[in-house]
Design a protein around this nucleic acid. Structure first.
Lengths: 317, 317
DNA sequence: ATTAGTTATATAATCAGTTATGTAAATTTA
DNA sequence: TAAATTTACATAACTGATTATATAACTAAT
């Protein structure tokens, strides 16, 4: 079985399971050693009840981290083995109050030495190691609690893929992509407006010639995203971020962020004081992205777009 | 869920399982992220086949550490999903040679990036820890491989219980126990002989008065084991260990070893040069104990006992 | 060439957990 | 206060593994 050596840490999960199986393996024999008629899986329930006289099933489940049906089943088995008594709660007729029977109590006494010996055996093994498994588990639980593996993998994927994205300056050959990418997203959420067509049909005239810029995001050398930086008329040092569009096929590659960064850098290099944008609050991922880029909600600008219901600004000075 | 904090390291097994579940939890979502139609449990089989073109089922099972039926099932599922082809081995008609189908091969390519990202996500998490989980697992696997938890617990139990055992000098009040404990074991394996009765009925006359000693092992102040040190007639500095008997109810408490040690100490204090004993090879645990005490097989002594078929000696000088 | 034993695989039964679902009791809301 | 919702629990169905067992194919020993 050289699987674990070959595959690397990718299989950490299975490896942990294997070790846990190795440890749990002879649990039932250990009970027999102490002459206790007991199934290892009963232990968590038993332990909780040995600390508190009476408890309803869901509370036990909560405490030991099992599902409620699992505890229900274990308790049914332990009732059959005469270790547990059930009584209906008088205040709340739904609750099944569970407690140790006299025979269950007897086991508490017998099991005490077993706890001691098992704990010592494990502590003893710990003493023979140089890397602390217990603390390592605690660290991993903490880290995965903060951010689970799925999110960590997503981040890695995004990072890797964003390396394949190139942000380039607009050229005439990208006019059709600039138009199509924008029409695609606008028409999924809204209706195309007059002002849209003007800019999309003639970016050179309506954006570039007026002192604006356009960036194109290439993924594997294909245009998958665009964004424009418009110079605001009658406002020196004020620019607008507009016409940002990313192909839904290219999502999860950080393209919006990379385009946004490029626009901000360009605005800075143009000595812009403020960057401004218009959007709609139904576009949650977009608003989220703008927030990450540093934009904050502002009010007061006039807009030619019906779909705009939020305006955001970013101070560059 | 404060179960894990309260119970201590006793529940190491469950805690490991919980962590492994936490890691494995979103595995299927991770595959979806890469647009791969794949069940996580298929992975080990898939991985092995991606490295080698063709393999029979048992070899795969062996390599990934699963049972053969488990691999059989997984392969049936993967065949249904068109990822795997089966062919009968021509040399050996029992063998079902398994290989990736063209669709399976395609996944190999898609999955490559996933391997990279998952590995990086895990390595990245490792980098955030101070205790190395991976190395800790390796250490534990090694230690449990050497001696499993059951044996470690047994040792702890023995140690704990042997502390409750006291070895005391023979007194007249123990005569009945000395007799009964010996008769008990002798008559389970053999027939009582003339020589037995002589010594058991009159230990004072046949053992103590002839320069011998008897020790009694008390467990919770009750006699549970006895052993005699006989001075060998006509051999100065030669002693015999004899009449060792431990109650079967008191097994696993190291009593034999403690009695043996006491006898050896006494013999040394008497300036004995050699200690000698007679036994029978069907008494495996006894022979084992004598070996642990340092005795080795010897020949040449005369014995009054029919049941004796092995003689052992220990040099004390 | 039989026969007995071994090996490779499939199938069945089991296990310890899970999620899904139904029902009665309690609580909240209108 | 009746209706809607939530909660506690049991039960059923499923899951991913296991062990046990049956069967066919091979191998070794008479």
């Amino acid at each position: 079985m050289n699987f674990f050596n070959q595959t690397g840490k990718m299989v950490l999960g299975s490896r942990l399971r294997r070790l846990s199986e190795q440890i749990t393996e002879n649990a039932s024999q250990i009970y027999r050693l102490y002459d206790i008629d007991f199934q290892p899986k009963w232990f968590p329930v038993f332990y909780v009840l040995s600390k508190e006289q009476e408890k309803p099933i869901t509370e036990i489940a909560e405490e030991i981290g099992h599902s409620q049906p699992s505890v229900s089943k274990i308790i049914a088995e332990m009732v059959k083995a005469n270790l547990i008594l059930e009584t209906k709660n008088k205040q709340d007729g739904r609750k099944n109050m569970v407690s140790l029977s006299p025979q269950g109590m007897e086991i508490t006494e017998k099991i005490g030495n077993q706890y001691i010996d098992v704990t010592n055996a494990i502590e003893d093994t710990f003493a023979q190691t140089t890397h602390d498994l217990w603390k390592a588990i605690e660290e991993w639980e903490y880290l995965l609690n903060q951010k689970n593996l799925l999110r960590r993998v997503e981040e890695q994927k995004k990072m890797r893929e964003s390396k394949k994205v190139k942000i380039v300056d607009y050229e005439t050959k990208y006019q059709q992509d600039f138009r199509a990418l924008n029409i695609e997203w606008i028409s999924t959420y809204f209706k195309m407006e007059e002002a849209d067509y003007k800019a999309l049909d003639d970016p050179e005239g309506y954006i570039l010639k007026k002192g604006g810029y356009i960036f194109v995001a290439l993924y594997e050398d294909k245009p998958v995203g665009v964004c424009a930086l418009l110079k605001m008329e009658n406002h020196a040092y004020e620019y607008e971020l507009a016409k940002m569009a990313v192909s839904p096929k290219a999502q999860g590659k950080n393209i919006g962020w990379l385009l946004g960064q490029a626009i901000i850098e360009k605005a800075k290099s143009l000595d812009a004081a403020n960057l401004y944008l218009e959007s709609n609050t139904i576009l949650k991922p977009a608003i989220n992205l703008y927030n990450k880029l540093g934009f904050q909600k502002v009010v007061g600008h006039a807009t030619p777009y019906e779909r705009c219901n939020i305006q955001m600004g970013l101070n560059l000075k």
